[in-house]
Amino acid sequence: MRDDGKARLAALGPLKGRGAASRVTGRFEQRSASREDDGWGSGHDFTDASGEALEPGPATTVTVERARSIISRNQSPDIGFSQSINPYRGCEHGCVYCFARPSHAYLDLSPGLDFETRLYAKTNAVELLRAELARPRYACAPIALGVNTDAYQPLERRERLTRGLLEVLAETRHPVHLITKNALVLRDLDLLAPMAEQGLVQVSLSVTTLDNRLAARMEPRASAPHARLRAIAGLHAAGVPVSVMVAPVIPAITDGELEAILAAAREAGAVDASYVLLRLPHELKEVWREWLAQHYPDRAAHVMSLVAQMRGGRDYDSAFGTRMRGEGPFAQLLAARFAKARRQLGFTRLPTLDCSRFAAPARPVPTPPPSPQGRLF
């Protein structure tokens, strides 16, 4: 069992470079651990004589995962794609508001610090994709890449799984929609630009705030806001259709920046825009409340009150149709502001991805296992 980190949080405050403040217990965990003082002060002794922390923050660890399948499918009526690929589990960006955090509970890990420090790389993702696309019954439909966790998170610089997946998609002329908040996407312009000429790719950049200090606290290892705007400009200059996602919009924290974000993204070259209201499913409620208490204690109650007003009196409502936008007067005002800014700034729609060019790869030839009789000679 691992220390939940709450005693350390109380003594030293949030960890630098991490979004979550502690190891929030996952909903499937049978046991949890906490630090207790033995009466000699050792249970709460986190600093040395000079005041420096005795225990450094948790390091990032990466586990190789041999996945059994790589394309996930959904029929959600409020999601604009039916297929997606996530080459990684967990995300080192550490965005404290990430709706995917609760997925780490399925691994018996914490949706808090474990989600951003204990990562999994699906190292066979490329071969699985090639095999999936080669199946006779495969029906081509746009694939969204990087939905649950960011496909361009820092780990991608070393693993290059997203790069490998894009190479297969480019080779087979398969349409793809990339979703990211990392400027690393510009690394793959040599693939994306030719695909864009064939109507095979779209990119959505998520911009939550234009405030660098807020971004450093809220999404500590994602690209800075100005770097994301440069990425939008770079993609646009290369002819890659790009949109901006103001996601999530956080009441009383970032909602006042909505128009400014849209204007900055439009100036950089974004042709389309969307927004998503803050979502707090499962354990994310506790992760978020801890962050609010540490960084905005003066307005934490107000923020959660506004959230509840838009979520039927609760922290979250997962109903299709309202989970992305919320309901009630505040949500209606937000929708009206977005619609007005979108219209005034001249946003249009991303072009439709072309599925007609798809050419399935050759089916891999299975290699028969070696005959045990060979050991007789």
Rank of each mutant, 00 (worst) to 15 (best):
A134H: 07
V64G: 11
Y120H: 09
G51I: 02
E52G: 02
A33S: 13
Y97H: 15
G112D: 01
V64W: 02
R35P: 07
S76Y: 04
A134K: 04
A59W: 07
R137W: 10
V126W: 00
T61F: 03
R137K: 14
G80S: 09
P58M: 02
T162A: 10
P142Q: 04
P58H: 02
A100R: 03
S69L: 02
A125S: 14
L155Q: 11
G80L: 03
T117Y: 00
P111K: 04
T149W: 13
R157T: 15
L165G: 14
D37R: 06
N148K: 04
R68D: 15
E65P: 01
G80P: 10
Q30C: 11
C91Q: 06
S82N: 01
L119G: 12
G80Y: 01
G80T: 02
P154G: 11
E116C: 06
T63D: 15
V96C: 12
E36W: 02
F115W: 05
A67K: 02
G146I: 00
S103N: 11
R35G: 08
A105R: 08
I71T: 09
S34R: 15
K122A: 05
N86A: 05
D48C: 08
F99C: 07
Q153H: 13
H44F: 12
G90W: 05
N74E: 08
N148M: 13
N124H: 13
Y88S: 04
S103D: 11
R101Y: 03
P142S: 09
P56S: 04
E127H: 12
E116N: 04
P111Q: 03
